[in-house]
Design a protein around this nucleic acid. Structure first.
Length: 115
DNA sequence: ACTCTGACTATTT
DNA sequence: CAAATAGCCAGAG
């Protein structure tokens, strides 16, 4: 790895930590994570972090979708519907690349802290 | 050092 | 209501 500045590394680490905490069968959005990290306007960076997260198979990137519950990042997974298949395997219904009952399966990191 | 791009989102037309 | 535009910020060439 190249020399990442501490700030950048912290940002990526935070994103990873949040994503790893997403319960099975639940999903969240880039914006929600970004907001939780205090960078609500850096939702794209969350996606960027996810891209880097490909080196970390322990990170369930399939549980992170856009705010509409659409599998915007499905093309970044190997195969054709790997992302969809992984989510369906967790009990999430997906139709036309969109998560059904999204509001129901949505998991907000802030909610996890509030317990 | 400059420019382009992107797994987003909110706003405006 | 659907489509275009503008902010956003960091990595890569």
């Amino acid at each position: 790895m190249s020399n990442y500045s501490n700030d950048t590394l912290n940002f990526f680490e935070r994103v990873y930590l949040v994503v790893e905490q997403i319960p099975e069968g639940r999903v969240t959005s880039y914006g929600a994570i970004a907001k939780y990290l205090g960078a609500a306007r850096s939702s794209r960076m969350v996606g960027w972090a996810m891209n880097a997260a490909h080196n970390k198979p322990e990170i369930p990137a399939q549980r992170v979708v856009n705010r509409l519950g659409i599998l915007s990042g499905k093309h970044h997974f190997p195969g054709t519907n790997t992302m969809q298949r992984l989510l369906e395997d967790e009990g999430i219904s997906i139709v036309d690349d969109q998560i059904q009952n999204f509001k129901k399966v949505f998991w907000d990191p802030s909610d996890a802290l509030n317990s």
